[in-house]
């Protein structure tokens, strides 16, 4: 039977239309806005000029916040990787009947609003929160520990949001590894640790890198944890965009910052795709 070349496109057309209308078109608007000017009254003046981009790089203020964002994102990725690999590996190895239940537990946070989950840390880490309350009650400290409104609290908030993404990506990668490979390695004289290091770990790297990429990209674009759990020193680039767009109604400059962030992330994703292949992420997400 002759293949109909238009058939896949027909099947894809609803998704492509949605992506075009809900992603491509808005991004185009943002790009166009980034060249406009803002009148003192808050009105936007159509123009084509690079003043908003020049303003971003005019002094160190904005680039420093961008670099801080990248630093926090890398720290979050690192911690999520360590914290995520262990449960993912456990899911891969376990034969327990509780495995499906444990997997649901990983997904459970998604059932609760992100804002509520973030706000709840205030009751845990605050001066009169659970931890300080218990430590004070049992005389282990005399003044509350400053655990809230600092970078540690922001990263904590980011981890609770992003850890499931990391676990699922790594697990999907691990799940695709034939367990007989490690058994073969061990039968040839490897210790369990050597088999993990030489066989399992390298084969799980695509999932690790997919998880790292997702966590990194999502961290760069999030603004709630720094806003709710951060202090004066924890400004991130998404908060800056929020303030420019909402606070000062400076949509053109807010758009320019968004485009700069977008370009940075595109470069990172492009680099990832070139060396690792972006299909690993789709594979992980579809499994999740």
């Amino acid at each position: 039977m002759k293949e109909k070349p238009w058939k896949p496109w027909l099947l894809l057309s609803p998704s492509l239309t949605a992506v075009f209308l809900l992603l491509i078109v808005p991004v185009c608007f943002v790009v166009v806005y980034s060249f406009w000017l803002r009148a003192p009254s808050g009105m936007d003046i159509p123009a084509f000029q690079f003043g908003n981009y020049a303003k971003f790089f005019a002094d160190s203020f904005y680039p420093v916040i961008l670099l801080n964002t990248i630093r926090v994102a890398l720290e979050t990725v690192f911690i999520c990787l360590i914290m995520g690999y262990i449960p993912a590996y456990f899911f891969y190895r376990t034969e327990s009947r509780l495995k499906p239940f444990l997997m649901i537990l990983v997904m459970l946070p998604f059932w609760i609003s992100f804002i509520i989950r973030t706000l709840s840390w205030i009751n845990i880490l605050g001066d009169s929160g659970l931890i300080n309350h218990l430590l004070l009650k049992y005389g282990m400290i005399t003044t509350p520990l400053p655990m809230l409104y600092n970078e540690g609290a922001v990263i904590m908030g980011l981890i609770q949001y992003l850890l499931p993404f990391m676990i699922l990506n790594i697990y999907v990668s691990l799940d695709g590894i034939d367990k007989s490979l490690t058994e073969a390695a061990q039968s040839l004289g490897c210790t369990e640790w050597q088999a993990f290091r030489e066989v399992t770990l390298p084969l799980s790297l695509p999932g690790v890198s997919a998880g790292c990429l997702l966590v990194f990209v999502l961290t760069c674009g999030t603004y709630l944890p720094p806003m709710i759990l951060g202090g004066p020193n924890n400004e991130m680039i998404a908060n800056l965009i929020f303030k420019r767009v909402i606070g000062t109604l400076d949509w053109p400059f807010g758009s320019a910052i968004s485009v700069i962030l977008l370009l940075l992330l595109v470069i990172i994703v492009y680099t990832y795709n070139r060396y690792m292949g972006i299909n690993q992420i789709f594979k992980s997400l579809s499994k999740g």
Binding site: F61, V64, I65, P232, N233, E235
Partner: peptide
């Protein structure tokens, strides 16, 4: 004000 808040 944003700059001051951010410590610039």
């Amino acid at each position: 004000w944003d700059r001051i808040m951010a410590g610039a």
